[in-house]
Design a protein around this nucleic acid. Structure first.
Lengths: 133, 133
DNA sequence: TGAAATTTGTACGTATGTATA
DNA sequence: ATATACATACGTACAAATTTC
């Protein structure tokens, strides 16, 4: 239940409640979250507030939203191993909107830029594990 | 100028305009963006729309907002070199809210989790460059 | 020092559009 | 077709911190 007198804003209390449900398994990967209007009534806050809470979880890479369909807990993708040759240099950052569109990268997923000599690779954060060989 | 008939939403057009100014140097690192109300009048949209545009840039790690003060283009921090020993494994992801608070990580900055045997390091994305040794 | 203005943060509500179920 | 569900956009109000005068 939302505590109106708390210094923690309502949207963060909602986000925390959902994050806890995801962490303890009551909202497992793939499971749909309640709809925005359901959460509205459940917590007694405005839809704006619910949307801000969900936006925060998206930015963390915890959930994904399919427009007109709903929000669900993100499935943990298989991580492919990527071998880092000696001398490779890696920078990590958030993708640009252009990169997100081109490689179909979800919100809240960073990228790794791997350089080895003249070669450059863009790796999608949630799909790889880097291994120094 | 915002094109109301475009399929590109207004907030994205504003974000694109600001991103372009940052990219071409007319808004250099450290420079303050116009205030939300200035941008409101400049683009002829509601404050909500401006705030959504700026939120997008924050999530990309392009700008940072100081409450009650303003939003400015993020300074590019010095990247410290981090040596990856052979056999090290690296996963990258967004930090949890707890990690962001503990290590004072800005919005839009990912982390790298480096494991080598039993040791685990959490590296802040915009402050390091990984080098496979 | 202190008051006023500025600036961002939070929250509510309304309306309309569009894609999905 | 109808209902559901998310996306966009506008506007209002007040709070809290910073900055300016």
């Amino acid at each position: 239940v939302i505590d109106r007198r708390s210094y923690v804003p309502a949207y963060r209390q909602v986000a925390d409640a959902l994050r806890a449900q995801i962490a303890d398994g009551s909202l497992p990967p793939g499971r749909a979250l309640p709809s925005e209007s359901a959460l509205e009534h459940e917590h007694g806050v405005a839809r704006t507030t619910i949307r801000k809470a969900i936006a925060e979880l998206r930015a963390e890479g915890v959930v994904e939203t399919l427009p007109s369909s709903g929000t669900r807990v993100r499935l943990i993708p298989e991580r492919e191993e990527f071998s880092l040759q000696r001398g490779s240099r890696v920078v990590i950052r958030m993708p640009t909107p252009a990169e997100r569109a081109e490689y179909d990268i979800d919100e809240g997923v960073p990228v790794a830029i791997v350089r080895h000599g003249a070669r450059t690779h863009l790796l999608i954060g949630d799909r790889v594990e880097l291994i120094a060989k």
